[in-house]
Design a binder for these strands. Structure first.
Lengths: 218, 218
DNA sequence: TCGATATACGTACGATCGTTCGTATTGTCT
DNA sequence: AGACAATACGAACGATCGTACGTATATCGA
């Protein structure tokens, strides 16, 4: 998880980093990766400020480690759980969208989707942090597009999977932000309905879309 | 524009505020409304730090004035220009979407759409600033929904205008962020194509959709 | 066993933050 | 004309920022 930050670690340090990063991703999902300060993070993790600084070397390294930790949590929460529960094809696409909606609505990160926040914060700030965030988003969107490709036999009207993946992630991100802004679950229902209707219009079988039906009318 | 910040101002102070806010909205679109510091803003505007502080009273008041200034620029750039150029109906909806895409791609704010950045930055930070940002977004999304309602005769398949407005703004915001992240115009073409195809599927006339066609294949 | 390495801490550095105070200047209202 | 309010500035406040240094402790490899 923190591999590559400095190099081979002792077990004690890895455990400390794990504890600190668990706090860091929640703070950063609210305050942003720049708003995440070493002093405040140390206080939240019950360690000294200089101790946290030593563990990560620099603020940028801390930010990169935080992105990596958030990525691991996202991958296991959304991607791996959907992949484990469904075979390739439309059902997995539906499971991915449903898992993402649950991940955001369930506030797996206190401040909503970590990457929705980080990508907007760093989209105009070139550097290693932006690259790491972009890479994580690319991986997610590409995985969704590939999963859509596998679903092609069940979605006869499917054109470019990358185009549809763009549209779906756009709807998911919008649901996340609007839900946080207005403190309501309604945007999740709108996003679920939009994805469901879109897939249905492309010829998908209604029965496979039921997980989205449930989330479209909560 | 800065009305309500403190109260009745002299002409000289209003001019100073105007100059400072012109810098503030560009800085905030990159660094965020929290990353916008009074000292740096004063330097960019060629004034003293204490002078800027006096003009706005507090950082939060400065943030609120910055939101108001950005809102005015957005309204004149997107809403008023589309409203002036088109009558009620589908053509105005198309003009609004096209104007928004041009507004984002043309970097009317240096760091891309100001409100896309501010809404994500403050979606987990309750307070007057979040309320001001939410109010601006509500106004925009409501105006788009109402405009869609006027277009109903030309879009026979139209269901809930608010639902379609949610989907369209989701696509626009996604195009903005992804374009900034990857430094490419491709996301604008994806968003334009998505809106065009969506309206076409609902029965809109192809001829009215040509402004989106142009932006879908740049 | 012994040197090397990685934690952790306290402390301190210069820089910048938002804010306040005093003061001079300018403009407006009675 | 005179009282008042709004600019604009320099200076300074305490607080916090990221970082660096010294030091003690614990762990690992040679």
């Amino acid at each position: 998880m923190t591999q590559g930050v400095i190099d081979g670690r002792r077990a004690r340090g890895d455990e400390s980093r794990r504890i600190v990063l668990a706090e860091a991703i929640d703070i950063a999902s609210i305050e942003g990766l720049d708003g995440l300060s070493i002093g405040r993070l140390a206080e939240a993790a019950g360690q000294s400020k200089s101790g946290v600084a030593t563990l990560f070397g620099s603020k940028e390294s801390l930010q990169l480690a935080t992105v990596a930790a958030a990525r691991a949590r996202f991958t296991s929460t959304v991607i791996e759980s959907a992949r484990a529960a469904t075979p390739r094809g439309l059902s997995r696409v539906v499971a991915l969208v449903a898992a993402w909606l649950d991940y955001s609505r369930g506030r797996v990160f206190t401040g909503g989707c970590f990457f929705a926040a980080a990508s907007v914060e760093f989209d105009s700030k070139p550097g290693p942090v932006r690259d790491a965030v972009t890479d994580a988003l690319d991986t997610w969107e590409t995985y969704l597009a590939i999963s859509l490709g596998y679903a092609r036999p069940e979605v006869p009207g499917l054109g470019d999977p990358a185009q549809l993946a763009f549209e779906i992630t756009a709807l998911l991100d919008a649901a996340n932000t609007r839900s946080l802004l207005r403190d309501t679950d309604e945007p999740y229902a709108r996003a679920a309905a939009a994805v469901r209707d879109r897939l249905r219009a492309l010829g998908a079988d209604d029965a496979v879309l039921t997980p989205l039906d449930e989330r479209a009318t909560p």
